[in-house]
Design a protein around this nucleic acid. Structure first.
Length: 157
DNA sequence: GCCAACGTTGGC
DNA sequence: GCCAACGTTGGC
Protein backbone atom coordinates (compact mmCIF):
# COMPACT_ATOMS: atom_id res chain seq x y z
CA UNK A 1 0.00 0.00 0.00
CA UNK A 2 1.75 3.13 -1.15
CA UNK A 3 1.79 6.27 0.86
CA UNK A 4 1.27 9.77 -0.42
CA UNK A 5 3.04 12.95 0.52
CA UNK A 6 3.08 16.66 -0.04
CA UNK A 7 6.56 18.14 -0.28
CA UNK A 8 7.23 21.88 -0.28
CA UNK A 9 9.87 23.42 -2.49
CA UNK A 10 10.73 27.08 -2.80
CA UNK A 11 10.76 27.83 -6.52
CA UNK A 12 13.50 30.41 -6.02
CA UNK A 13 15.65 27.53 -4.92
CA UNK A 14 14.38 24.44 -6.74
CA UNK A 15 11.27 24.90 -8.83
CA UNK A 16 9.51 22.10 -10.66
CA UNK A 17 11.05 23.39 -13.88
CA UNK A 18 14.50 23.19 -12.31
CA UNK A 19 13.86 19.57 -11.38
CA UNK A 20 12.48 18.73 -14.82
CA UNK A 21 15.73 19.98 -16.29
CA UNK A 22 17.79 17.58 -14.19
CA UNK A 23 18.79 14.08 -15.31
CA UNK A 24 15.77 11.78 -15.07
CA UNK A 25 13.84 14.79 -13.71
CA UNK A 26 15.15 13.68 -10.34
CA UNK A 27 16.50 15.72 -7.45
CA UNK A 28 17.98 14.86 -4.07
CA UNK A 29 15.62 16.51 -1.60
CA UNK A 30 18.27 18.41 0.35
CA UNK A 31 17.69 20.86 3.14
CA UNK A 32 15.14 19.17 5.37
CA UNK A 33 16.08 20.42 8.84
CA UNK A 34 13.07 19.42 10.84
CA UNK A 35 13.04 16.16 12.74
CA UNK A 36 9.43 15.29 12.07
CA UNK A 37 9.85 15.79 8.33
CA UNK A 38 13.09 13.83 8.39
CA UNK A 39 11.41 10.99 10.22
CA UNK A 40 8.67 10.78 7.62
CA UNK A 41 11.35 10.25 4.98
CA UNK A 42 13.34 7.81 7.10
CA UNK A 43 10.53 5.75 8.61
CA UNK A 44 7.58 5.88 6.26
CA UNK A 45 8.60 6.68 2.71
CA UNK A 46 8.93 3.91 0.15
CA UNK A 47 10.22 4.05 -3.40
CA UNK A 48 7.22 4.70 -5.61
CA UNK A 49 5.20 6.69 -3.09
CA UNK A 50 3.22 9.52 -4.66
CA UNK A 51 4.34 13.10 -4.06
CA UNK A 52 2.46 16.35 -4.57
CA UNK A 53 5.12 18.86 -5.62
CA UNK A 54 4.19 22.12 -3.90
CA UNK A 55 5.63 25.60 -4.42
CA UNK A 56 5.83 27.65 -1.23
CA UNK A 57 7.18 31.06 -0.25
CA UNK A 58 6.32 32.51 -3.63
CA UNK A 59 3.72 34.65 -5.35
CA UNK A 60 1.36 31.78 -6.22
CA UNK A 61 1.75 28.92 -3.74
CA UNK A 62 0.16 25.66 -4.84
CA UNK A 63 0.52 22.13 -6.15
CA UNK A 64 2.40 22.31 -9.44
CA UNK A 65 3.16 18.70 -10.21
CA UNK A 66 2.97 14.99 -9.52
CA UNK A 67 6.15 13.27 -8.43
CA UNK A 68 7.31 10.04 -6.87
CA UNK A 69 9.80 8.93 -4.27
CA UNK A 70 12.68 7.63 -6.36
CA UNK A 71 15.20 6.33 -3.83
CA UNK A 72 15.57 4.97 -0.37
CA UNK A 73 16.92 7.08 2.45
CA UNK A 74 20.35 8.71 2.05
CA UNK A 75 22.59 11.11 3.91
CA UNK A 76 22.04 14.77 2.99
CA UNK A 77 25.54 15.94 1.96
CA UNK A 78 24.75 19.62 2.41
CA UNK A 79 24.93 19.30 6.19
CA UNK A 80 28.71 18.85 5.91
CA UNK A 81 29.31 21.66 3.42
CA UNK A 82 30.33 24.88 5.19
CA UNK A 83 29.41 26.83 2.05
CA UNK A 84 25.85 25.54 2.09
CA UNK A 85 23.01 27.37 3.80
CA UNK A 86 22.08 23.94 5.14
CA UNK A 87 25.44 23.40 6.83
CA UNK A 88 25.08 21.95 10.32
CA UNK A 89 28.27 22.19 12.33
CA UNK A 90 26.81 19.93 15.00
CA UNK A 91 26.31 17.01 12.62
CA UNK A 92 29.23 14.60 12.30
CA UNK A 93 29.89 12.33 9.32
CA UNK A 94 30.02 9.30 11.62
CA UNK A 95 26.54 10.20 12.91
CA UNK A 96 24.72 12.16 10.21
CA UNK A 97 21.72 14.01 11.51
CA UNK A 98 19.99 14.96 8.22
CA UNK A 99 18.72 12.69 5.49
CA UNK A 100 17.09 12.89 2.09
CA UNK A 101 15.35 10.89 -0.59
CA UNK A 102 15.42 11.40 -4.34
CA UNK A 103 12.24 12.82 -5.81
CA UNK A 104 11.36 12.34 -9.47
CA UNK A 105 8.87 14.60 -11.21
CA UNK A 106 6.40 12.49 -13.17
CA UNK A 107 4.15 15.20 -14.52
CA UNK A 108 4.10 18.96 -14.36
CA UNK A 109 0.54 20.17 -13.86
CA UNK A 110 -1.16 23.50 -13.80
CA UNK A 111 -0.81 25.35 -10.52
CA UNK A 112 -3.59 24.16 -8.24
CA UNK A 113 -3.29 27.21 -6.02
CA UNK A 114 -3.57 27.48 -2.29
CA UNK A 115 -6.83 29.49 -2.51
CA UNK A 116 -8.29 26.74 -4.73
CA UNK A 117 -7.19 24.07 -2.26
CA UNK A 118 -8.77 26.01 0.59
CA UNK A 119 -12.02 26.44 -1.34
CA UNK A 120 -12.38 22.69 -1.93
CA UNK A 121 -14.57 21.13 0.77
CA UNK A 122 -13.17 17.68 -0.02
CA UNK A 123 -9.76 18.89 1.14
CA UNK A 124 -10.84 20.48 4.42
CA UNK A 125 -8.65 18.08 6.39
CA UNK A 126 -5.57 18.31 4.18
CA UNK A 127 -2.73 18.90 6.65
CA UNK A 128 -1.11 21.69 4.67
CA UNK A 129 -4.31 23.71 5.09
CA UNK A 130 -4.40 23.38 8.85
CA UNK A 131 -3.68 26.52 10.79
CA UNK A 132 -0.09 26.89 11.80
CA UNK A 133 1.19 23.92 9.80
CA UNK A 134 4.75 24.59 8.71
CA UNK A 135 6.04 21.09 8.03
CA UNK A 136 7.81 20.87 4.71
CA UNK A 137 6.76 17.22 4.29
CA UNK A 138 3.30 16.04 5.25
CA UNK A 139 1.45 12.76 4.63
CA UNK A 140 -1.56 12.95 2.32
CA UNK A 141 -4.61 10.74 2.81
CA UNK A 142 -5.32 8.42 -0.16
CA UNK A 143 -8.73 10.07 -0.63
CA UNK A 144 -7.10 13.50 -0.75
CA UNK A 145 -4.52 12.24 -3.22
CA UNK A 146 -7.19 10.74 -5.48
CA UNK A 147 -9.19 13.93 -5.34
CA UNK A 148 -6.26 16.19 -6.17
CA UNK A 149 -4.89 14.12 -9.06
CA UNK A 150 -8.44 13.91 -10.41
CA UNK A 151 -8.89 17.68 -10.20
CA UNK A 152 -5.58 18.00 -12.03
CA UNK A 153 -6.73 15.56 -14.67
CA UNK A 154 -3.91 13.15 -14.01
CA UNK A 155 -4.11 9.40 -13.32
CA UNK A 156 -1.58 9.61 -10.50
CA UNK A 157 1.74 7.86 -10.10
C1' DG B 1 7.88 43.86 5.81
C1' DC B 2 4.48 42.06 9.03
C1' DC B 3 2.94 38.69 12.00
C1' DA B 4 0.96 34.23 13.73
C1' DA B 5 2.42 29.89 14.80
C1' DC B 6 5.58 26.59 15.89
C1' DG B 7 10.28 24.37 16.89
C1' DT B 8 14.63 24.72 19.26
C1' DT B 9 17.72 26.33 22.67
C1' DG B 10 19.55 27.05 27.03
C1' DG B 11 19.34 28.78 31.84
C1' DC B 12 17.67 27.28 35.97
C1' DG C 1 11.95 18.97 33.11
C1' DC C 2 10.11 23.66 32.75
C1' DC C 3 9.56 27.61 30.11
C1' DA C 4 10.97 32.15 28.23
C1' DA C 5 13.54 33.83 24.50
C1' DC C 6 14.75 33.40 20.08
C1' DG C 7 14.73 31.81 15.23
C1' DT C 8 12.17 30.07 11.28
C1' DT C 9 8.31 29.33 8.25
C1' DG C 10 5.24 30.97 5.06
C1' DG C 11 1.09 33.44 3.71
C1' DC C 12 -0.32 37.93 3.01
Amino acid sequence: MPHYWLMKAEPAEASIDDVLAMPDATVGWTGVRNYQARNFMRDSMQVGDGVLFYHSSCAQPGVVGIARVASGIKVDPTQFDPASPYFDAASKPEAPRWLLVDVQVVHKTRNLTLPELRADAALADLLILKKGNRLSITPVEPAHWQHIVSVLGHPGV
